[in-house]
């Protein structure tokens, strides 16, 4: 325990955050809001990584380094995802995911 806080508390918060983000991904109409849900899920993962680093191997660096790479991937995902949304918005004038079914044939 660090400062009297058990590891489980962090894991529970991360699990809850992950599920809230997952709900956002599943239930929102707007594509931008869906991406916001994905960002919340990535945050939950990072909480887990850092918490495990702190509680299991504080002298090591693996957890922090992994968290850094998650940041890079999150930024890349946000950049490409939102660029796609903007491109779709420009051609189809919508960001509502339900309306984007051109590939269904």
């Amino acid at each position: 325990m660090v400062y009297g806080i058990p590891l489980e508390w962090y894991l529970i918060v991360a699990a809850a955050l992950f599920c809230i983000g997952g709900y956002g991904v599943l239930a929102r109409r707007s594509a931008v809001a869906t991406l916001m849900g994905v960002e919340l899920m990535l945050n939950a993962i990072n909480i887990n990584l850092v918490a495990f680093w702190r509680y299991l191997e504080p002298p090591g660096t693996t957890g922090q380094a992994f968290a850094l790479f998650v940041y890079a991937v999150a930024a890349a995902e946000a950049a490409v995802g939102l660029a796609l949304i903007i491109a779709v918005w420009r051609t189809h004038n919508t960001v509502v995911l339900k309306d984007l079914d051109m590939l269904q044939g």
Binding site: V2, Y3, I5, Y10, V32, L35, M36, E39, N43, N46, V50, A51, W53, R54, P58, Q64, A67, L68, Y71, A74, A75, A78, A79, L82
Partner: peptide, 23 residues
Amino acid sequence: LLEAPFLAGVQVFIYVGGISTLI
């Protein structure tokens, strides 16, 4: 609280400064 101040800074720096602005 997890004693990772650098990651706290990175969190604000990338998420608030970059990703939120983008969104």
